[in-house]
């Protein structure tokens, strides 16, 4: 029983990070109506960035996190201005194809430049953990979860308490009406994309203690974030949180009870089932709420 609880706790903790990545994806969809197929690969790039910064400067991982976050916020803005904005008026198909191209580009430029070998960082507190009842809470997981939680709270405050955040929510509900109210759509798009990518990057760096760094790492994590977003409802941030925690737990349980090579399989099946039976997601909603 305590083993079961352990798996659940592990899943929830990891789920916190998934929530951050998924929130990024859902903001991009909510505000821009763009399905970002490259979310996982931005995450992967951030992991490489984190890896190299740590390697060459020996900076504390949490400072690295902040640095990478800022870096990728601006990187996201750059990508939006140079590429995404060109197709944003069109149908979904172009969005998919463009972000797909970006995703494959990232994956392969990393392979070409750095090779396909797995890299990893070690942190001194890797195996430190706290014991509560019968359950061990690993230190890195806990810290990552706390970071994720703080981030989500900050996001919540931003979206509900600041004027800019409210403008973004208005834009996601009805772009034209928002424009008529004087809200600058282009600014909304750029910001939303920047935030979305920044979150993916934060998620990536936060996951570094648990995942090796290699070019394909974004594929699974990207798909996972899509599953979370669909589960929670496209555009819904609370949905992303709930979905992420759920997915974290499912992943944790299926990794233990099903053959490891099939654990991904379990997630995919859940994905297809959710798409079939509740495409609006568990909490529903097409706007950021």
């Amino acid at each position: 029983m305590s083993e079961f609880m352990q798996l659940i706790v592990n899943g929830l903790l990891l789920g916190g990070i998934y929530a951050v990545i998924a929130a990024g994806l859902t903001i991009i969809f909510g505000v821009m109506n763009v399905v970002n197929f490259a979310q996982g690969d931005f995450l992967m790039l951030a992991m490489y960035a984190g890896f190299f910064i740590h390697q060459f400067t020996g900076l504390d991982p949490y400072i690295t996190l902040i640095l990478v976050a800022l870096l990728f916020f601006f990187f996201g803005i750059f990508i939006e201005k140079s590429l995404i904005s060109k197709v944003i008026e069109g149908e979904h198909e172009k969005h998919i194809l463009l972000t797909l191209g970006i995703a494959v580009f990232f994956r392969n430029i990393v392979t070409v430049l750095f090779g396909p070998e797995y890299k990893g960082i070690t942190v001194p507190y890797r195996f430190k953990s706290y014991e509560i009842g019968n359950v061990f809470i690993s230190h890195p997981r806990l810290i990552s979860f706390i970071v994720a939680a703080i981030l989500m709270v900050l996001l919540w405050i931003f979206l509900t308490r600041t004027e800019f955040g409210r403008a973004m929510r208005a834009s996601s509900e009805n772009r034209h009406a928002a424009e008529l109210m004087g809200i600058n759509s282009k600014l909304m798009f750029v910001t939303a994309f920047g935030i979305g990518i920044m979150f993916a990057a934060i998620g990536g760096v936060a996951l570094m203690p648990f995942y090796y760094v290699f070019p394909e790492v974004g594929v699974y994590l990207g798909l996972l974030s899509f599953i979370v977003v669909v589960l929670g409802g496209l555009g819904s941030i609370p949905g992303a949180v709930v979905g992420a925690l759920l997915v974290g737990v499912i992943e944790s349980l299926s990794g233990e009870y099903i053959d490891l090579s099939l654990s991904h399989f379990g997630i995919f099946i859940i994905f297809i089932l959710v798409l079939l039976f509740k495409p609006q997601g568990i909490l529903g909603g097409e706007k950021i709420s």
């Binding site: 590429l83 194809l97 463009l98 797909l100 191209g101 970006i102 995703a103 494959v104 580009f105 994956r107 392969n108 430029i109 392979t111 070409v112 090779g115 396909p116 070019p215």
Partner: peptide, 14 residues
């Protein structure tokens, strides 16, 4: 390096 053909592909795709 492997990955170069796909890199070229992705640039063409974009």
């Amino acid at each position: 390096r492997s990955g170069l053909p796909m890199l070229v592909y992705s640039i063409i795709l974009i």
